[in-house]
Amino acid sequence: MIFSSISDFVDMGHHGLFVWSAYGICFLVLSINVAAPILARKRYLQQEARRLRRETEK
């Protein structure tokens, strides 16, 4: 590691707030992009399975 301590690493040479907020925002957006289609798929499959069952029961 290039930093001498963990607090040094967090501080990022007094640029900590900038660096960590940039990374935080970036990873938040990445996770939103991954989670959205997975959740939508789950919802859609549930809803379609219900519809299929309803149609076969008729």
Binding site: M1, F3, M12, G13, H15, V19
Partner: peptide
């Protein structure tokens, strides 16, 4: 954590 800091921008370049 391992890349050297920039000689002008210090650590903000890690963005």
């Amino acid at each position: 954590a391992f890349a050297p800091p920039d000689y002008q921008q210090g650590n903000s370049f890690r963005i």
